[in-house]
Nucleic acid binder design. Sequence first.
DNA 1: AGCATCTGCTTGGTATAGTTAGCACCTCAC
DNA 2: GTGAGGTGCTAACTATACCAAGCAGATGCT
Lengths: 121, 121
Amino acid sequence: MADDTNERVWKGVGEFIRTQRELANLSLRQLADIAKISNPYLSQIERGLHKPSADVLKNLASALKISAETMYTQAGLLERSAGDANHIGPGVEAAIRLDPQLSADQKDTLTRIYRGFVERG
Amino acid sequence: MADDTNERVWKGVGEFIRTQRELANLSLRQLADIAKISNPYLSQIERGLHKPSADVLKNLASALKISAETMYTQAGLLERSAGDANHIGPGVEAAIRLDPQLSADQKDTLTRIYRGFVERG
DNA sequence: AGCATCTGCTTGGTATAGTTAGCACCTCAC
DNA sequence: GTGAGGTGCTAACTATACCAAGCAGATGCT
C-alpha cells in the first residue's frame, strides 16, 4: 500500500522462511502444522503473496527455533537493534563452544570446518 | 484461536495506546494522521475492538515516540525478556542457519556434521 | 500395472483488518 | 442563535489474511 519498500521486505521474509524451513528439513505441511497455520497459506507466505500477521510470524519463529526478534527484524518490523544478540560474527562459534552435547574434540572439528567455510567466502 | 488470554492482551494494548496518546496530548485524528491510519480505526483499536497488525503497531509506536519493542511487548508479540530467555540451549543449528557468511550448502554440511556428533553422544 | 503417500500449489470461501462518509456532541467566534 | 471547527464514535464498505478441499506430479511399494 503506497510503500513499495515494504513489498520487498516481506517478500524477503518469505524467502527467509523457506530457507529456514528447508534447512530444518521440514515439509510445508510439517512446518505449517507446528506453527498452527494451514499449509497453502504457508506456501503463499513463502512466495511473498501474503503479508503474515505478527502472530503468525511469532508462531513460525518458534516453530523454526529462532527468536521472534530475529523474525520481526527480517520482516522489517524491528530495526536491527542494540539489544539483539544474534549478530553476524561470533554466533556460530559461541554456540558451538557452549553446546554441552559436544565433546572438546567435536567442538574443535566443527569450529575448524566453520572457519574454513568462512575464510573462503 | 480459542486462546482467550490473547483477547486480554490486545485489549490491554488499546488502553496502553490511549494512555500514551493522552499523555502526548494528541487527538484521535492527530495520532491517526501521524501513524497513517484512519481515525475511526484508531478509535476501535483503543477500545479493543480490533487487533492491529504489527505494521500499524510499529507506526503507532514511532508516532508516540516509544520503541517498537515496547509496543510489541505490550501487544504480547514479544516476550518480556531482554536477555533472550526464549530457549534454553544456545542453539548451534540456529546459529548456523542464521549466519549470513555461509552458503546454503555450507549450512547444510555443518548442520549434518553437528547432528552426527550429537546423535552418537 | 496400480494403489498409497508424499511433495508444493490452486481454487473458492470466510473472517477480520482497515477505510470513507457521516453522525452527535461540545466550544468558541460573530 | 447560527455557523465553523474541534472532539470521539457508528455504519457500510473494500481489501486482505487465513482456511478447507482438492489437484497434479513425484516416489515408492506390492
